[in-house]
Design a protein around this nucleic acid. Structure first.
Length: 279
DNA sequence: ACGAGAACCTGTTTGC
DNA sequence: TGCAAACAGGTTCTCG
């Protein structure tokens, strides 16, 4: 599922029910997700108060008292769901972890494909974890602009679209928003990454920021698995210009081609683009 | 150094 | 209709 806007939607949904509360009970129904659950997972969390929920790229950071921090990744199909007001529904086959807070709210992690994971962050300095340290700039931060993006793309001879999926270039883009940002910027997914400099890099950085902010405002995109923690659907999927729209007309394009949007495969992933509008 | 492809796992969609 | 192949929002490893 989840790219940056979906993870941010999850963070915003969980914060009000977790922050300031104590995790009274931890239920882990299997010992592993993508990786084994970390040492003492249930024991170390039980009874501990949640101080805050953060996010870095697609990683959700759950900060507990006394410097304990859990790094969560939703993989392709992971989702958190909040069940308030009494007993949660009986767990289904892929409901792997429950946290029951001291006011009886159940926060449940569900992940059919189990590409998601939870790991301890280094105490006191969560971002020094190897997985976070390797991340590129946070695209919604003040420091992210065309120059910062171009610097990360310098020397890359492959096409721009797969480069945008590299979390070391910019943190948080996935297949959907990489396609959408390139469309908004008018750049071909096939363009050599190192040629995205100057005004082109400015346009792309601005497009990335714009599409991510719009998606967050819409509660993310719900294609298959993504739900907001309250169970509601995101609705940014209705705002896609190109993703999943092969054979449909290109929106906002005067090229007049009824089959404006094309699908191709790059680095094993589907890429959607308008050949007339993206150069 | 970089990039393509496979692997990880399950559910859903597509195509014959 | 039925079955098998293809495909899915991610990350990491190997190989060339």
């Amino acid at each position: 599922m989840p790219e940056l806007p979906e993870v941010e939607t999850v963070r915003r949904g969980l914060a009000p029910v977790l922050e300031g509360r104590r995790v009274a009970t931890v239920l882990a129904r299997r010992p592993d997700l993508r990786f084994p659950l970390p040492d003492g997972f249930a024991r170390r969390l039980a009874g501990r108060r949640v101080e805050g929920l953060g996010r870095r790229g697609k990683y959700l950071l759950v900060g507990f008292e006394r410097g304990i921090c859990l790094i969560c990744h939703l993989g392709m199909s992971g989702r958190f769901r909040v069940h308030g007001g009494g007993a949660a529904p009986a767990p289904g086959p892929h409901d792997h972890v429950d946290w029951i807070t001291d006011d009886g709210t159940c926060v449940r992690f569900h992940d059919p494909r189990r590409f998601g994971f939870m790991l301890w962050a280094p105490p006191g300095d969560p971002e020094s974890h190897p997985m976070l340290r390797a991340l590129g700039p946070e695209p919604l931060s003040d420091r992210f602009d065309g120059a910062a993006l171009a610097a990360r793309l310098a020397g890359r001879r492959g096409p721009i679209k797969p480069a945008l999926l590299d979390q070391a270039v910019v943190a948080g883009l996935g297949n959907i928003y990489a396609c959408e940002a390139l469309f908004l910027a008018g750049l071909s997914p096939r363009r050599r990454a190192s040629t995205v400099v100057g005004a082109r890099a400015d346009r792309l950085a601005a497009a990335i920021r714009r599409v991510l902010e719009a998606a967050i405002a819409a509660g993310g995109s719900s294609l298959r698995d993504h739900r907001r923690p309250d169970g509601e659907l995101g609705y940014f999927q209705h705002g896609f210009a190109v993703y999943g729209r092969a054979g449909r007309p290109c929106p906002g394009c005067d090229c007049g081609r009824a089959d404006g949007i094309r699908r191709m495969v790059q680095a094993g992933r589907a890429t959607f683009h308008c050949a007339a509008r993206q150069r």
